[in-house]
């Protein structure tokens, strides 16, 4: 399946996935579509973990801090839950596997979501590796987070193109869209969408890649445009936008809107925007 990239079969698969992957097939299809099956090397995961004790790991402090604040109300991750140890192992293993990236906040939510969808510890690790290396640009979580920042500029341009009134409203209310949407990109909506909608978004993400994140982001804003326009000050806009995603239970509608309203506007413009924006973002001097 991972080798199929076009043609009628591919279109059919995309259509099916947009309708939602049945729970019993979900983790298998995620592993296949993300490329995790291909990347998997037997024994490698355990070997990574046996290299050094956690405390000697460079990222240990940051990881430890986030272990107890990742889905703490879920029984798997509440104090004493079995998920915490697994989460710790996955994040440590990843930071050793890719020392250039190490650990970045947000990965805990990605790994946690993988564990919550019935993947074993090792399966979750490989999906995470393929997500961060193949489905998302390789430099997504690197030191200064330039790539996700460039994506924010692209998103703003898209909003201006597709929803000019909303874009103007943000300007007038002194609202910085990035303040709300940055985490959508970095955590793939993990910390904002209800879980049933989130999994539907991830289904499509594993098959179609990063483009889906833009499509969903635009669709969320599109579906809430009227209400956002009613907010008469910046604080009200921020508050509305923070809670609007928490109640997006209409996954089918979100999928439909994301497919339709971006059909024309998205691919061609995005590539153009992305390239101009990434080159204009230069790494910051060391002090910042």
């Amino acid at each position: 399946m991972a080798t199929i990239g076009q043609g009628a079969d591919w279109e059919e698969l995309r259509e099916l996935v947009r309708g939602g992957i049945p729970v019993m097939y979900r983790n298998k299809i995620w592993q296949e579509a993300s490329g995790a099956y291909d990347m998997r090397q037997p024994g490698y995961y355990r070997e990574l973990l046996s290299r050094q004790p956690p405390e000697e790991c460079q990222c240990w402090g940051d990881i430890e801090l986030d272990l107890h604040r990742t889905f703490p109300t879920n029984v798997l991750f509440s104090p004493g839950g079995q998920g915490i140890e697994k989460l710790k192992n996955i994040l440590l293993a990843y930071s050793i596997h890719n020392p250039l990236v190490g650990y970045c906040q947000g990965m805990n939510l990605l790994a946690g979501t993988l564990l919550l969808t019935n993947n074993t510890e090792e399966e979750s690790f490989w999906i995470l590796v393929s997500m961060l290396g193949r489905r998302m640009p390789e430099d997504y979580f690197t030191q200064q987070l330039l790539s996700p920042q460039a994506d924010q500029r692209v998103l703003k341009e898209l909003v201006q193109e597709i929803m000019p009134r909303l874009s103007l409203h943000f300007q007038e209310m002194h609202v910085d869209l990035t303040a709300v949407t940055f985490s959508w990109f970095l955590t793939l909506f993990t910390d904002c969408l209800p879980v049933e909608t989130l999994l539907r978004v991830w289904d499509v993400f594993f098959v179609e890649g990063m483009m889906v994140v833009f499509k969903i982001a635009v669709a969320i804003l599109w579906m809430n445009e009227k209400e956002i326009l009613k907010c008469r000050n910046g604080a009200a806009v921020y508050c509305y936008m923070k809670q609007m995603t928490l109640v997006m239970h209409q996954a089918d509608k979100l999928m439909k809107v994301s497919k339709e309203n971006t059909k024309q506007a998205l691919p061609k413009q995005m590539l153009h925007f992305f390239h101009t924006n990434l080159t204009s973002l230069t790494p910051l001097p060391h002090c910042f």
Binding site: D66, R69, T70, F71, P72, T73, S78, Q105, G106, L109, A179, F182, S183, L186, T187, D191, A235, Y238, C239, K242
Partner: peptide, 13 residues
């Protein structure tokens, strides 16, 4: 209590 920490920023007024 028991809320997942958020990435980026949080707002309140």
């Amino acid at each position: 209590e028991g809320a997942t920490h958020t990435i980026g920023v949080e707002f309140g007024s």
